[in-house]
Simulated scan of single mutants.
Amino acid sequence: MTVAVFDHEGPWTEEEYLSLGETSQRVELFDGSLHDKVLKMHHYAAAGIDWYLLADQAAGALRLHRRRGRHYVEHSAAKRGETLELTEPVRATIRPEELLP
């Protein structure tokens, strides 16, 4: 998926990431800990980041959230065997089993 959406193969180095400059179109991958599921979502909404994609490893699902005011609401979701179609903030088709163990 990285290659298709970002035209970049493999992990990003810190130098490559920082060279992207200031943008509201940032993608961050994380480990799924409680901090990430609750606190990051709160902080991202407060920072005005419009979209938040959560990869829920325990449920084998992807959940796309859209910011509404200072909070996120679930916009769409897909579990194993389904596809998540994104039209915003990027166009992509994602299958949970391709990202989740």
Rank of each mutant, 00 (worst) to 15 (best):
H71E: 12
R63F: 00
H65N: 11
E14R: 15
T23W: 03
A46I: 08
E16V: 08
H71V: 03
S24D: 12
A46C: 02
G69K: 03
V38G: 00
G69P: 02
G48H: 02
T83I: 13
G32F: 03
K37Q: 14
F30D: 08
A45T: 05
R80G: 06
Q57N: 09
V73F: 06
Y52C: 09
A47C: 10
S33E: 03
S19L: 05
L18I: 12
L34P: 00
V73K: 14
G81E: 07
G21V: 00
K40H: 08
H75G: 06
A78E: 06
T13R: 06
R70V: 06
S76I: 11
W51L: 12
T23M: 04
A61I: 06
E15L: 09
G21P: 00
Q57M: 07
L64Q: 07
R80W: 05
G32N: 02
R63G: 02
A58Y: 01
D56E: 07
H65K: 09
L64T: 07
A46M: 06
V73A: 15
R70A: 15
H43I: 04
T83S: 15
L18G: 05
H71Q: 12
R63H: 10
S24N: 13
K40P: 00
T13N: 02
A78H: 06
M41D: 02
T83P: 00
L53D: 09
K37S: 13
G48Y: 01
L54M: 11
L62V: 06
V38D: 05
L20M: 11
T23R: 09
L29A: 07
K79C: 09
H42Y: 09
T83E: 15
L53I: 11
I49D: 07
A47V: 02
E15Q: 13
L29K: 00
L34F: 10
S24A: 14
L20H: 10
A45P: 01
R66F: 00
H43K: 10
V27N: 03
Y44H: 12
D36M: 04
R26T: 12
G48F: 01
D50K: 14
V27A: 12
P11W: 08
G81D: 07
R67H: 02
L64A: 11
F30N: 08
M41E: 13
G21M: 00
I49C: 14
A61P: 03
H43C: 05
H35L: 09
H65E: 05
D50R: 14
Q57W: 01
R26C: 04
W12L: 15
Q25I: 05
Q25D: 14
F30E: 05
L18S: 13
E82C: 06
A58D: 14
A77W: 02
V73Y: 06
D56C: 05
S24M: 13
R68M: 10
S33Y: 02
R67E: 04
L34D: 13
H42V: 15
A77L: 04
S24Y: 05
H35S: 05
F30G: 09
Q57I: 10
L39P: 00
T83Q: 15
W51H: 15
R68V: 14
E15C: 02
R26F: 06
R68G: 11
H71M: 07
G81P: 01
K79E: 11
R63A: 08
